[in-house]
Amino acid sequence: MESITGGKSRYHHGDLRNALIEAAVGLAVEGGPERVVLREAARSVGVSPTAAYRHFTGQGDLLEAVKIRGQQALADSMTEAVRVLPGLDDPGEEAVRRTEAIGRGYVRFAIEHPGLYRTAFCRTPLAEGSGFTGLDAPEDRPEFAAFVQLSDTLDTLVAAGRMRPENRPAAEVAAWSAVHGLSLLILDGPLAHLPADQRDAVVERTLTTIVAGLTR
């Protein structure tokens, strides 16, 4: 888990705010958003709660920072899934494979890092004022990187001629809902009991069905 949490170590000097966030990410990995406690993060890096409160106004502030890290890690998983794809000469087919890949990276992140995944989608007081409606996300905000990546990928499908322009509006919501719902069924629903090979087959079948719907 070091690739996400950065490992656990006591704080010595430098950027205390970042050290507290890293510790809190580790807590989220262990037990989801409920485990993200400012005092616990302070204890983990070896500073007093008073020192921690100099960098965070309270629990919600820290949780929002961890939520953003979780969203960034989710986007990284999606990016990596695309990166390992073989190159194709057909732009349309490449766009299809890319769309399937980002869904694969999304679900894989949920399976491998369930605590951080749940934290990435938890509700926080700061998130309530973000202005994000689920349709248009600011491209310069890291907490929306995964959504922007999905939107860009769907635009590529249209540009490559594999998706009709009239089907594009709000298509990211349909695709997002499908992979998010699948992820939760795997984490907390009956699909949690599937053997890994059957689970992976369900994931692939779902992704091909999603893309088939987008490109019909």
Results as ranks from 00 to 15, higher is better:
M1K: 09
M1G: 13
E2G: 15
T5H: 05
T5V: 12
K8L: 11
R10D: 15
Y11M: 09
H12S: 14
H13G: 06
R17E: 11
R17H: 13
N18A: 09
A19W: 02
L20P: 00
I21S: 01
E22N: 04
A23R: 00
V29S: 02
E30M: 09
E30S: 10
G32S: 08
P33A: 06
V37A: 11
L38A: 05
L38S: 03
R39D: 15
A41E: 03
A41Y: 03
A42V: 08
G46V: 10
G46T: 08
V47P: 00
V47W: 03
T50D: 08
A51V: 13
A51T: 11
A52I: 04
H55M: 13
H55A: 13
F56M: 04
F56D: 01
F56L: 09
F56K: 00
T57M: 12
T57G: 10
G58P: 00
G60K: 04
L62P: 02
L62F: 14
L63P: 00
A65V: 04
A65E: 02
I68V: 14
Q72E: 10
Q72K: 04
Q72C: 11
Q72Y: 07
Q72M: 11
L74S: 02
A75S: 11
D76V: 07
S77D: 04
M78N: 05
E80H: 15
E80C: 13
A81E: 05
V82E: 07
V84H: 07
L85C: 06
P86S: 08
A95V: 03
V96W: 02
A101T: 05
A101C: 13
G103C: 14
G103L: 11
R104N: 12
R104Y: 09
G105M: 06
G105K: 01
Y106W: 15
F109Q: 01
F109H: 00
A110P: 01
I111V: 10
H113G: 08
T119K: 00
R123T: 14
E128H: 09
E128L: 14
E128S: 10
S130M: 09
T133L: 15
G134A: 12
G134N: 10
L135G: 15
R141P: 09
R141V: 14
R141W: 15
P142R: 04
F144R: 00
A145E: 06
A146L: 12
S151E: 06
T153R: 01
T153P: 03
L154S: 00
T156C: 12
T156K: 06
L157C: 09
L157H: 03
A160V: 06
N167E: 11
N167I: 14
A170I: 12
A171M: 09
A174V: 07
S177H: 10
H180M: 13
G181H: 07
L182K: 01
S183W: 02
I186S: 03
G189T: 10
P190N: 08
L191M: 12
A192V: 07
A192L: 13
A196C: 15
Q198R: 12
Q198E: 11
A201F: 07
R205P: 10
T206C: 15
L207V: 06
T209A: 15
L214D: 00
R216V: 12
